[in-house]
Simulated assay, not measured.
Amino acid sequence: MFQLLLSAYSTITIQDTALFLGMNEDDATNYVLQQGWVVDPASQMLTVKKQTIVTEQKLDATKLQRLIEYVFHLEH
């Protein structure tokens, strides 16, 4: 559920976060603070810290071949 919140929100209330995580507000706040989120006590809002996603792109020979054929077709 935490991963869904992470991908769906940039800011969310403490109350909604606690509801989604099935925790009380203090536990939910402490948990997300440990994950790097920021709390604004005045508005009771949490700012979500997005995690960087590292993806490794693998070269697929068939895709490369199709690209070569496409470019060749365009040139001739």
Rank of each mutant, 00 (worst) to 15 (best):
F2A: 15
F2V: 13
F2N: 14
Q3A: 09
Q3G: 10
L5F: 07
L5R: 02
L6E: 03
L6K: 05
S7H: 14
S7V: 15
S7C: 13
A8G: 14
Y9S: 02
Y9M: 08
Y9L: 07
Y9D: 08
Y9P: 04
S10V: 11
S10H: 08
T11S: 06
T11C: 07
T11R: 09
I12Q: 01
I12H: 00
T13H: 11
T13A: 09
T13M: 06
T13G: 10
I14R: 05
I14A: 10
Q15G: 07
Q15C: 10
Q15R: 13
Q15M: 12
Q15W: 08
D16H: 09
D16R: 12
T17M: 02
A18K: 04
A18G: 03
A18S: 01
L19T: 11
F20M: 14
F20K: 11
L21E: 07
L21T: 09
L21Q: 08
M23S: 02
M23A: 03
M23F: 00
N24I: 02
N24H: 00
E25D: 02
E25F: 00
E25L: 01
E25C: 06
E25T: 04
D26Q: 12
D26N: 06
D27S: 05
D27N: 05
D27T: 05
D27A: 07
D27L: 05
A28M: 03
A28Y: 01
T29I: 05
T29P: 03
N30G: 02
N30V: 09
Y31W: 06
Y31Q: 08
Y31P: 01
Y31T: 07
Y31F: 09
V32A: 01
L33W: 01
Q34S: 12
Q34M: 06
Q34W: 05
Q34K: 08
Q34C: 05
Q34N: 14
Q35K: 14
G36M: 04
G36F: 02
W37M: 11
V39D: 06
D40G: 01
D40N: 05
D40H: 02
D40I: 10
D40W: 00
P41C: 01
P41M: 00
P41F: 00
A42R: 11
A42M: 10
A42W: 12
A42H: 11
A42S: 05
A42P: 06
S43L: 06
S43W: 03
S43T: 12
S43D: 04
Q44F: 11
M45T: 05
M45N: 02
L46N: 00
T47R: 10
T47D: 00
T47N: 00
V48T: 11
V48W: 00
V48L: 08
V48A: 01
V48R: 08
K49E: 10
K49M: 13
K49I: 06
K50L: 00
K50S: 02
Q51Y: 13
Q51T: 14
T52C: 10
T52G: 13
T52A: 10
I53V: 15
I53H: 14
I53N: 15
V54R: 15
V54P: 10
V54C: 14
T55R: 15
E56L: 13
E56H: 15
E56F: 13
E56D: 15
E56P: 12
K58H: 14
K58N: 13
K58F: 07
K58Y: 12
K58E: 11
L59T: 10
L59I: 13
L59C: 09
L59Y: 12
L59Q: 13
D60N: 14
D60A: 12
A61E: 12
